[in-house]
Design a protein around this nucleic acid. Sequence first.
DNA 1: AATGAATGAGGTTTCATTCAT
DNA 2: CATGAATGAAACCTCATTCAT
Lengths: 208, 208, 208, 208
Amino acid sequence: MSPRGGQPKMVQQGRETRGALLDAAATVVHRAGYAGANIRAIAAEAGVAVGTIFRHYPNKAALLAAVVERETVPVLEALGDLPGRAGTCTVAGNLVEVMTTLALLQEVLLPFELAFLTDPELAAQRRQLMDSKADLPGVPTQLAQYLAAEQTLGRVRTDIPARHCAHVLLATMFGLAANPTSEGPSLPSAVAMFVEGIAPDRDIPTPG
Amino acid sequence: MSPRGGQPKMVQQGRETRGALLDAAATVVHRAGYAGANIRAIAAEAGVAVGTIFRHYPNKAALLAAVVERETVPVLEALGDLPGRAGTCTVAGNLVEVMTTLALLQEVLLPFELAFLTDPELAAQRRQLMDSKADLPGVPTQLAQYLAAEQTLGRVRTDIPARHCAHVLLATMFGLAANPTSEGPSLPSAVAMFVEGIAPDRDIPTPG
Amino acid sequence: MSPRGGQPKMVQQGRETRGALLDAAATVVHRAGYAGANIRAIAAEAGVAVGTIFRHYPNKAALLAAVVERETVPVLEALGDLPGRAGTCTVAGNLVEVMTTLALLQEVLLPFELAFLTDPELAAQRRQLMDSKADLPGVPTQLAQYLAAEQTLGRVRTDIPARHCAHVLLATMFGLAANPTSEGPSLPSAVAMFVEGIAPDRDIPTPG
Amino acid sequence: MSPRGGQPKMVQQGRETRGALLDAAATVVHRAGYAGANIRAIAAEAGVAVGTIFRHYPNKAALLAAVVERETVPVLEALGDLPGRAGTCTVAGNLVEVMTTLALLQEVLLPFELAFLTDPELAAQRRQLMDSKADLPGVPTQLAQYLAAEQTLGRVRTDIPARHCAHVLLATMFGLAANPTSEGPSLPSAVAMFVEGIAPDRDIPTPG
DNA sequence: AATGAATGAGGTTTCATTCAT
DNA sequence: CATGAATGAAACCTCATTCAT
């Protein structure tokens, strides 16, 4: 009769709730897309009440932004040494490794990226977030630095700006992730095509 | 209870309204994204009453689908002879031309593409539309046929399936269109990179 | 280009249109119920433009009221001599005949009756219509007068007011018409049950 | 953009709201008919916000169906022993009692019944509801069983199928409820007329 | 007299957010 | 901290009615 509504439900407290919410949000976004990810679905998935979400995040956007951050930051940190890898192994090998990592990230983040692109209002919010995390260099920058280093080493042709190369490679990866088909090539073979395109002139490639 | 009618307003009639609605819808989608494109905004942009939209299209989705169709169909038709261009001019030139055309289309269509990717329900609708227009072969198919023809002519390396090449190129274009930056290369130079990647072995191409 | 929109369509003119509209309205109401009978459906059924309806009737309610009137008036007129039939044939026979006539009318009118009962606003309009046609005595009145006459003749028990009898009989007919089932009795047998109930004491009825 | 919230308003909680909504819906339907019962009017009558309704019922139809159920179920249950009453008291007395109960129910339910009859789409929904409550035998069935039992006991004439009798009696009650007039007989006297009609032949009833 | 495109109020429903408990 | 009922703005869509042609 009283509106108290059942037992306290023995939910995980504090910190743990935050984690559960991020997991739940990621799950729901993955399942239903950004637009279909409503607060109720996320709360249900996390096993908490709707109001709880607003105790941890000021609004829906902040929750979803937190998901992005949680997934992105470790990847960015892991990529921190990318420029230093120049000259090691093969260019193709390095790029495939990086792209594989990014593809895994993309698996979670793609719906968010799409939403940022879809909704100008959201994009503005994202930019703020990015600025506040400006201490970590972004993926494009890392990749460009790596490629520039490889250019210095003669393992990448020098007549194309490294930033352009990085941008094209990332665009390709994004495009492939966004339009998944059975028609498309595997990630390594796509990278291979790209590497062919940026290889130094074949006359000289492996100087004796 | 009685429809007052408001100002005379010099309303455009019939056919013209349909065009105005398509223009308005495209404008609003461009400005606010697919999700932000609501019926009222479109009606206001077109300078008509909300109800008018539903005289011409059974629902919002149909209106937006009509925008996609109006923009897409002429492009698809213009691309109809693409496979036949194999062997003419240069591979790079042909691809730049096609990609330039598609980039213009993308300018209008990108928000729609993103929405299709974002919202599973929408994607289903799009597939229906595409199936009903199945007489026109899609862009990926055209491009793949063209590349296959060039392979036969020895102007494109044959160790990569033509469908894969087409897919990668389109993915790159999509990725570049979706993430516009000052950092990125111009469209022709991006295509150039791709062409390098699919060129036949350099030992042979320029004999003599 | 001009909004003239095709040829004049060679529609039936003036008077005929009115009849076509009444037919169409009756058809649509029968098919979809009063609530489902919208102006567009009626116009389509009649093969005229929406605007045409409003040239003949000030609003939707007036059109539907006209349908009721067209169907009802001849029936009322045909029933005009009902009280005079007292003493002729048998009571049961007379009632079955009248009820059969009314049942046919009901076939068309039931959705309207239900709507009048459903929508208080509509009921008010109906009352106005009825008042304006007050020169024709209504069915309940006719029937009551007939039964009163039969009471005088000793062919109907006198301990029940004739108006009550009439009301009950009509209520039964309405109820049967409104809830059509395979479970129910035929119209004549229902009337027979009623006649048994109003028959004078059985000791006397069929005097040797 | 931010929900201002308005006055505190001392809102009733949980369960109570559901009851208030059912009451409000019944009131509005009674006042304005089924068609005139819109969500906003019901919310206003209940003193809650529009959105509140949809926290408790998935849609308008479900709310109204809940009204029907709340009113109907106890009546059906109370009628469960009807067939067992055969032979007790008098036939007329038993029927008057039952009909009085049903008349009270009808007072609330009539607009719904009419709507079901008016709108084919609604009727389909009702049938589903009825099927899900199929464990409770409907009123017609109960009544028919009772009358059949009385036939066996010789208190009702046997030359009319009991189902027909039941159907006619209910039709009469429905008809009387639907067309309330000062002209009509009281419920007991209407039942009395019916009972006369189904009484066994007078020659035998009071043997002795 | 007929047309039918345009109108806009009003219908149901969704959902981010608040707040009393 | 957690709860979840309540909120109400805003979305899409319907339809009786008007009016320029």
